[in-house]
């Protein structure tokens, strides 16, 4: 168990290392291009070379890379080209906003999809199951920004109930949170619901559930004690891995509603060519993804006695 965790941790660090190297080579191997990004397209070659030597770019690539990693470990990713402030400050603020959005989203999505999934999977083929299943295919099929378009059309333009942007310029506003959270939940709950349903349905047809029923146990006990525990193992991993998936969704939703979060920062940076911000954002995103994978693996092992004790 501990060995497994240690192995996973090493693999995780290794991936982070490789990713950082790829990233650094992609964006900073070509020094001239970096200087061009920093000083603008109309800067002369001489200006660029002066800037490069002033900022330590004369050193060989590998030592620049190690310095960059060292800086990154201390949270120092340089200054944003676009906003002229340290990337770390910018990032901390944006991550906080995204964190709030994600938290509210999870608080709604998890109970909703687990309940629906279990209800649907309990009696496979029942009308409740059909309705839930079809509804979740429909909602997952429609990409976030299409859902967002329709919801904006209705709530903002037609009924004029909610604000169409969530930039929170006048401080935190619950009203501005509603649409982004709604879009995320609608897009995402279906997937987890379907996973839960499939897992529950499989458990319900398993032989040990048959044993439990034919032991004469009350239905409630069969579901609560025998089925749920086994049925929720798979959704657990899915939900944790959702973090990775959610990051993609967040990018789109934040851009759509001009929410000042991590995702919109990344897209702005990509459009502007703000390489230091891109590097920082990607490292953070990959860290979240890899870390959630780690948690999900460990959690799966802990939940599953068959693996835990072997």
């Amino acid at each position: 168990m501990i060995v497994l965790a240690a192995k996973r941790l090493v693999a995780m660090l290794l991936i982070m290392l490789v990713v950082s190297f790829i990233l650094f080579s992609l964006f900073e191997a070509d020094k001239m291009a970096v200087a061009g990004k920093v000083l603008g397209p109309y800067s002369s070659i001489e200006q660029r070379e002066i800037w490069l030597s002033q900022n330590g770019y004369d050193e060989p690539f590998l030592s620049r890379y190690t310095q960059w990693v060292g800086g990154a470990l201390h949270g120092d990713f340089g200054d944003s080209l676009q906003y002229k402030v340290p990337v770390s400050e910018l990032l901390a603020d944006r991550l906080k906003n995204t964190g709030i959005l994600a938290l509210i989203f999870f608080l709604i999505m998890i109970p909703l999809s687990l309940t629906l999934g279990v209800l649907a999977g309990m009696k496979e083929g029942s009308w409740l199951d059909r309705i839930i299943s079809i509804f979740s295919v429909l909602t997952t099929s429609i990409p976030e920004f299409v859902t967002a378009t329709f919801l904006t059309g209705l709530f903002v333009y037609t009924w004029q109930l909610l604000p169409g942007t969530s930039s929170m310029t006048g401080g935190f506003s619950w009203q501005e949170m509603i649409l982004p959270v709604m879009v995320l939940v609608i897009y995402d709950f279906g997937y987890v619901t379907r996973m839960t349903r499939a897992s529950m349905a499989e458990v319900m047809t398993s032989q040990y559930i048959r044993t439990a029923i034919l032991k004469g146990l009350p239905y409630k006990r069969v579901i609560m004690r025998h089925a749920l525990r086994n049925a929720l193992i798979a959704p657990f991993t899915v939900i944790v891995l959702q973090l990775n998936w959610l990051l993609s969704g967040l990018v789109v939703v934040e851009v759509f509603f001009a929410y000042k979060g991590f995702g919109s920062l990344l897209v702005d940076a990509a459009l502007f060519g703000d390489i230091y911000v891109i590097e920082a954002c990607v490292m953070v995103a990959v860290f979240i993804a890899v870390f959630s994978q780690f948690i999900s693996d460990i959690g799966y092992t802990l939940l599953n006695p068959r693996i835990r004790f072997s």
Binding site: S206, R210, A212
Partner: peptide
């Protein structure tokens, strides 16, 4: 094996 609940 299949008739016994694996997690109880």
């Amino acid at each position: 094996m299949a008739s016994l609940n694996p997690s109880m």
